[in-house]
Write a protein that binds this DNA or RNA. Structure first.
Length: 420
RNA sequence: CGGGCCGUAGCUCAGUCUGGUUAGAGCGCCGGGUUGUGGUCCCGGAGGUCGGGGGUUCAAAUCCCCUCGGUCCGCCCA
């Protein structure tokens, strides 16, 4: 008995018809991003582990979820846990003119226990605008992400927005927050106390009842913004308002990655439980390029989880009709030569066409034709073959079947398809 | 890393508590319902070492132990 393999823990195969939704989603994303002047970037799925370690030693992703390994040359590499670091690494490497506006679609890997909406390999679409600190780019990126969700028909999303201020602001606030929390350690949930020393910002993100109550009047990051950061935040908000992108300022919004400064945001799906309702988030990052050995430039971008988006789409019945939409199915019971030739003739004229294989009976072939979802069936039997004709049968209506000449078949079908 | 649930036909599951004839259903698949025609209907068929191993027993899908896998919750994230 040979061992039967299955997809590794936390991974999944995306098969038809589900994969049609992926094609549609990615196509929508590509269209929205290209229209905004963003170009596709394809970078390696693995990098030197150091690229990802710069995401911050305090992050879960780096501390315990990294999918790292040593290759045959003893290089320490890691599969990407998120998209931004690779893009910034590439920016440093090629130094393109700025702002460098790019988008990507990629698998992401995190070694963790899988559950609903969480995998060891998941997929993200994302975009980055690197090399400019202009707050209008924050606006553009957020609004474009918003428009992407809209293009999928998602309507129950909410956007939370915050500002972490400059790197100095962030540091000052973090220290102040740590002190504030330390004086109230006993009031916090036990599980959150460890974070106070290691990662005080994370405590703000806690959903534990006790901690939430104890930090109800916690100092706000927005009270610690320098003049420049405050001005930036204000312009971002004005821009979103002008573009009709609804948002809510949430001064407790803390995201999982350490590198964010200035704007940070997260889109949540109303239809999903809070454990996995985040369908995408992003922020501005001032120190990342420099920490990866590049110049001191700022960037802003987001990542959005495809699986999460599809879950959200399920919850509000969006993105459902995404099937193949075959035009014609060819049925040939004369041996297959005619069916083979007609199928290719149609395809070469831009008509989507499929056929049955295996030399089965007409009844069997018709069943396959029906299941294919095709609008029309073309039947070729001995009679049609002898007369140089084919029979056109309508699979989605009650119209009577008709005969068409084999000569100029594709042109005739183009006309038929146009009027149905 | 802590905890719950579940592994029986391709899929969804019943049967397990109260061991006992050839292990079932629905859907799907294949074939047929006279001469070459799908979707409804009818008939027939293929398909399962009951996750794996060990134990108890005259007898195990069913009871016990071990093990592997899946799934979900917490935490955290996409």
């Amino acid at each position: 008995m040979v061992e039967q393999f299955q997809a590794p823990k936390g991974t999944h195969d995306i098969l038809p018809p589900e994969s049609y939704r992926w094609v549609k989603l990615v196509a929508s994303f590509a269209q929205v991003m290209n229209r905004a002047g963003y170009g596709l970037v394809q970078s390696p799925m693995f990098e030197d582990v150091g690229v990802f370690q710069r995401l911050g030693e305090g992050t879960e992703v780096v501390r315990k979820e990294m999918y790292d390994f040593y290759d045959k040359g003893d290089r320490h590499l890691a599969l990407r846990p998120e998209g931004t670091a690779s893009v910034v690494r590439a920016f440093n490497q090629y130094q393109p003119t700025t702002p460098w506006k790019v988008w990507y679609v990629t698998p992401c890997f995190r070694y963790e226990e899988p559950q609903a909406g969480r995998f060891r390999q998941h997929h993200q679409v994302g975009a980055e605008a690197v090399g400019s600190a202009d707050p209008d780019l924050d606006v553009e990126v957020i609004a474009t992400q918003h428009d992407f969700y809209q293009s999928l028909g998602l309507s129950s999303l909410s956007l939370r927005l915050n500002s972490m201020g400059s790197a100095d602001d962030r540091r000052t606030y973090t220290e102040h927050l740590a002190g504030w929390l330390n004086q109230r350690l006993d009031d916090l949930d036990e599980a959150d106390r460890l974070n106070v020393a290691a990662h005080p910002l994370r405590v703000l993100d806690s959903k534990r009842e006790r901690t939430v109550q104890a930090t109800a009047d916690v100092p706000c990051i927005t009270d610690f913004l320098c003049a420049d950061a405050a001005e930036h935040f204000s312009r971002v908000q004005a821009g979103l308002q002008a573009l009709g992108v609804a948002y809510e300022v949430d001064t407790r919004l803390v995201r999982g990655l350490d590198y964010y400064t200035y704007s940070t945001w997260e889109f949540a799906a109303g239809g999903l439980s809070s454990a996995q309702n985040a369908v995408g988030g992003g922020g501005r990052y001032d120190g990342l390029a420099e920490s990866l050995g590049g110049k001191r430039v700022s960037g802003v971008g987001f990542g959005a989880g495809i699986e999460r988006i599809l879950l959200a789409a399920d919850a509000e019945s969006a993105l459902e009709d995404a099937s193949a939409n075959l035009d014609v199915f060819v049925v040939d019971i004369t041996g297959g030569d005619v069916g083979r030739d007609i199928t290719f003739e149609l395809r070469r004229h831009g008509i989507s066409a499929d056929r049955a294989f295996g030399g089965r009976s007409m009844k069997a072939q018709m069943k396959v034709a029906d299941r294919s979802g095709a609008r029309l069936a073309l039947l070729v039997g001995p009679d049609e073959h002898a007369q140089g004709m084919v029979t056109l049968r309508y699979l989605r209506s009650e119209a009577a079947q008709i005969s068409l000449s084999r000569v100029g078949l594709a042109q005739q079908l183009v006309a038929v398809l146009a009027q149905n």
